[in-house]
Design a protein around this nucleic acid. Sequence first.
DNA 1: GTGAAAGCGCTAACAA
DNA 2: TTGTTAGCGCTTTCAC
Lengths: 339, 339
Amino acid sequence: MSSPSPRGATIEDVARQAGVSRAAVSKVLRNAYGVSPDMRERVTAAMSALDYRPRIAARAMRGRTDTIGIEVPDLGNQFFTRIVGGATSALAGTPYQVVIAPAEQGPQQGLRAIEALIDRQVDGVIAVSPRIAPSVIERISQHTPVVVLGRHDVGASYDSIAGDDVAGADAVMAHLLELGHRRIAHLTLHDADLDAAAPHAIRLRRYKSAMAEAREVADVLPTEEGQDAAYETVRVALARLDPPTAIFAAHDELAIGALRAVVEAGARVAVVGYDDVPIAGHPALGLTTVRQPGRDMGARAAGLLRERGEGRTEPVHELFVGQLIVRSSTTADHVRPTS
Amino acid sequence: MSSPSPRGATIEDVARQAGVSRAAVSKVLRNAYGVSPDMRERVTAAMSALDYRPRIAARAMRGRTDTIGIEVPDLGNQFFTRIVGGATSALAGTPYQVVIAPAEQGPQQGLRAIEALIDRQVDGVIAVSPRIAPSVIERISQHTPVVVLGRHDVGASYDSIAGDDVAGADAVMAHLLELGHRRIAHLTLHDADLDAAAPHAIRLRRYKSAMAEAREVADVLPTEEGQDAAYETVRVALARLDPPTAIFAAHDELAIGALRAVVEAGARVAVVGYDDVPIAGHPALGLTTVRQPGRDMGARAAGLLRERGEGRTEPVHELFVGQLIVRSSTTADHVRPTS
DNA sequence: GTGAAAGCGCTAACAA
DNA sequence: TTGTTAGCGCTTTCAC
């Protein structure tokens, strides 16, 4: 028997096979009210006989796609993939399927990816560190639940989750100052201060105020995304007349690049990162960093989306505390300031 | 003026605003033949005035989604994310949007993710190392172009891309034997031999034959996915009476875990990985490994999908050669066998 | 060059 | 409890 349709059986085929109406099949499919056990059985039998799979697109036209979209800025950064893992695990076993749309680099980062998800009518969006104006998110969240992860803005119609970057950055600076460092540099993205609600902007601000409080002059090292750029930036900084004795990197990727420059230069410079990506704990690196509970954050984001689906309308804004993990990159003897 | 529809303007709204028919708008949208410049202008004006975005779901019902789906087994593995990056870059600037469906671990790995993509009627699927029978892929590729990446099977109706695992594994073994190692262990997934066409199965086979040729007894260390499992497995192996002097790990993730065990035990054991993930080149690790051109492979996969879309029907099967990158994890004096 | 109209597969309101 | 039916927004013949 040839397949009823080029792309497999439709609800119509199942109905015919089971000798019932399309509506009946639909009800079984959705576990809707008013289906006799007998009918349910015949329908399920027909479905498996025909290897029936509902077309999500057709369903989408009536309002649901059973799909949650996650916009991710950089799949190379393990902190982000950990967030994705948390969200995916939280949604496992539910009818929802997670799809990831990678953001392109550049201005308005994440906008295209988010719009692509919206165009595909996902039931909810998790936007990880999008570089777009809150007003845009506000507009989108009028019709589709959105959880913003990373940024600290409080939306009126969307939820947000962020790490406690104030506490995290303060802990880093306290640690370095306590170790006796004074010439502490901050390695961050060149446009970190552009968006005040972004995590990096907050870390930068706390760095600056900690330095001011310590009566030291701030030493910001602007760089590009990625280990290689960080490496290059730090290599140059170490060659200066007054190189820093410690570097607070805005995230682990940058810190790892910095560490490479430090190791290569044989310099006595402490390095601290942020996020605690898996490799940071490797004894060969031993990177001191702030652990962010990425999996928990991703899972919570998924949970917030589901709550929205169940009717919640008041926005939620949650902060997840991090934890300073001290490792050899700041405590080993060779990275203690001598002075 | 209130939005014409809760979810934004439809093609109907645009047509009304421009004073033309829906068909006309559709033609402009698709750059179809038979549109006067005047009409085109009025339509585009109406589209931007209304902030019109076509619903992909509606388009899907007529056969196209402008979406390419990638099934990925493990986002924590940077080799896979590199493949995704290559595919995404290759598709940038085209009408296609890439979405990623993460595979759940376990038997039939990747099946659910691929089916989820098919249910969403993606225009093409890139399946990265799926652990499913070729017959299943054969069936799916009857209606949707599929490129399998990693596995070495040659499909009749789908394309495949793989690394040259034979040459890669042989290069690793030649390198280690040349350094004088005899007790070489192979750290691989416990079920590597289950699927003969999988890359790990091939690496395992080449390891075994190289050992046989060297008249040494094979020492396979089966482990689970992830650095931690690899660490634990190697830790145990190093405590044996006759620990290996070298470990060939089936991929870098495992190698990095192995390296941790080696470093911690202060053992004189050479470690080789496979893939050359970004961190492998970090001087703190200095992992000898086989570089696989992940970005190129991903980009080529995307290209093959496009060729299919343009009508090609004969299957393509391509091998990408890797390159042994020798670093300190095998050459530093302390990891040379003493005997 | 332009428009009318059929139909893709599904859901949900309503009727029986 | 079950079935009929009206769309959802788009593409694509086929007339005009």
